[in-house]
Design a protein around this nucleic acid. Structure first.
Lengths: 317, 317
DNA sequence: CGGCCGTTTGAGCCACATCAACCGGGGTGG
DNA sequence: CCACCCCGGTTGATGTGGCTCAAACGGCCG
């Protein structure tokens, strides 16, 4: 993990300069050191972007447009216009501002553990970039992945209330998350019912995803089960991207197996067969859905369960 | 379903008298008519108990003890002291009073559908007595049960926010349910953040249960999977009963199969083998856990995920 | 160049599904 | 009151989807 810098009292410009420095330095290095420097640069740039976004949006409610940022440089995978958290959690600019102002950005390498099974969650995490899993290891060593998170998702909205995490939360790829201490979140929730509502909604949405996966595990054969997972991932990842494009795919086949409750070799065979039908193209880097219509049909995938009806988002408050 | 009576402006005594009347009448009848009369009596008694509870607890906060009621006559399976909803949803007397006062009790026969897949949920349901499932039917007719509800559970806390039910909610056994229209619930939520918090918690708790079942479906063999489900059911049902007793078991083996993602005949064989080991005794009426220690170990069951840490229940508000 | 990781391929096996028939009890209808 | 039937549970025979074990391959990093 990264050494902590004293960055909290520096201007965005200073932070960007620091980032630039690391990038320059990294070109002359190689291997592990190089990637470390690059990831440090990324985190600094994320800090800078965050600061810029904070300054450009006043805490009083009005939807201030975010100063346009070079997208390639932003480690956050969502349109910056919606703030660093994106529209995923359905927060108002005001609420997002309140959340972000008490949040701390953190960078994790591939495979790092954010929260271990059985621990008390001290922080609430929101994923800005990368991909994260929640998994459980049984006594005999078998592993089941219970949730897969993408940028914009909250990682443990339910655990906050339950007081203990029953799964291990770790990254698939290098990731940037915003972390809020539970105690600070608590006082925020008391002040802002709409944030409370948003977290409840996030909990319900993730339960809905789990439910759909449960149905697959219980009653679908391997092929439609895999197809459904791919549809879900593609849909969630593409919500904020152009349609039809290749999708950066963050899981290995072995990890897919742990999501689907299958063995890695069987996943491989199923992937090949699905490739053979021409419906999809999948390899380590990217997923391309060649015939969305038919794939949805084959997988019995209906994206409705991934959406909230807008009128229900802010009921009551 | 039952014909509606005009009961809302009758006293508890009148209601009990009416119930007594049906019971008397029922003894001279047989078959379907008899059970209908009995269920009508039950609903009337439930109404009466509700009224008594409402009268004995003032809307101003103080934990008024409920007048002792003959437990056998109360269709609600939880200690009346905690109100008709019991401690399941972790409501204060005050909140429970607010909820119950706008709720309508309803009685459903075995197999009745409360909410069909794809419908917009107009009501929020709380189960007082009986057992209820949420299930999904695939195109080829296969069925997967996603949740099993027992008295004290909310049936659709998440759907309220998502605006559409993705599963069919129906009963295993005759059941009494308290129903609140979503619009009334909405205004309650705006007034009482603690109710909002309780529903969020209920959503998280049910997600936690689903998560545990998902792990079983993905990575456990049939036997520990069944054992785990039985542990869970027993634990949830016994929270408000004496330990070691026989438990009234509401599912058939075929229904168990739909919970576990197995075929009915395989469930049968597994049940027999589990009986053979002496760990449990299970038939249509009752479940007896003979060796809790060993069963928990075999199933890798740890009831922690069914509990909320008390200090987290009312944070912030 | 060597080692590691992710993918691929093949052979054999087992847990669980499917199909089919029978049993016992309680409710129904004649 | 009896005959029937339906439902839930039980049993046996047979088939198969997916697992396990084992080995090889290609690309990337050191």
């Amino acid at each position: 993990m990264l050494s902590r810098l004293s960055i909290h009292n520096r201007s965005p410009e200073e932070l960007q300069a620091l980032a630039q420095e690391r990038r320059k330095l990294s070109t002359s290095k190689a291997g592990r050191l190089k990637t470390l420097l690059l990831s440090e640069a990324k985190l600094l740039e994320f800090h800078a972007d965050l600061r810029i976004w904070m300054d450009s949006t006043t805490p009083i409610r009005h939807s201030a447009p975010l100063k346009q940022i070079d997208k390639a440089a932003v480690p956050c995978d969502r349109p910056p216009a919606a703030g660093p958290l994106g529209p995923g959690m359905a927060l108002s600019v005001d609420d997002e501002h309140a959340l972000v102002s008490v949040a701390q950005p953190k960078y994790f390498e591939r495979g790092d553990i954010l929260l271990a099974e059985g621990e008390r969650p001290d922080n609430f995490y929101m994923l800005c970039s990368g991909a994260v899993r929640a998994s459980r290891t049984l006594e005999d060593g078998r592993l089941q992945i219970v949730s897969v998170f993408f940028p914009g998702d909250g990682l443990n909205p339910g655990d906050i209330l339950l007081g203990r995490s029953r799964t291990t939360i770790s990254t698939f790829t290098p990731s940037v998350v915003l972390s809020i201490s539970v105690s600070q979140l608590r006082s925020l929730l008391a002040q802002r019912p709409s944030i409370s509502r948003a977290l409840w909604r996030e909990t319900a949405l993730q339960a809905s995803i789990q439910q759909e996966r449960l149905i697959g595990l219980g009653r679908k054969a391997a092929e439609p089960r895999l197809a459904h997972a791919l549809c879900e991932f593609a849909y969630r990842l593409q919500r904020y991207a152009r349609d039809g494009d290749a999708i950066e795919f963050p899981l290995t086949q072995a990890e897919l197996a742990d999501v689907l409750g299958l063995s890695p070799v069987h996943v491989n065979r199923v992937v090949q067969h699905l490739r053979g039908t021409g419906l999809i193209d999948l390899n380590r880097e990217r997923l391309i859905i060649r015939n969305k219509q038919m794939l949805y049909k084959f997988a019995e995938f209906d994206p409705e369960y991934l959406e909230t009806e807008p009128e229900f988002q802010f009921v009551g408050t």
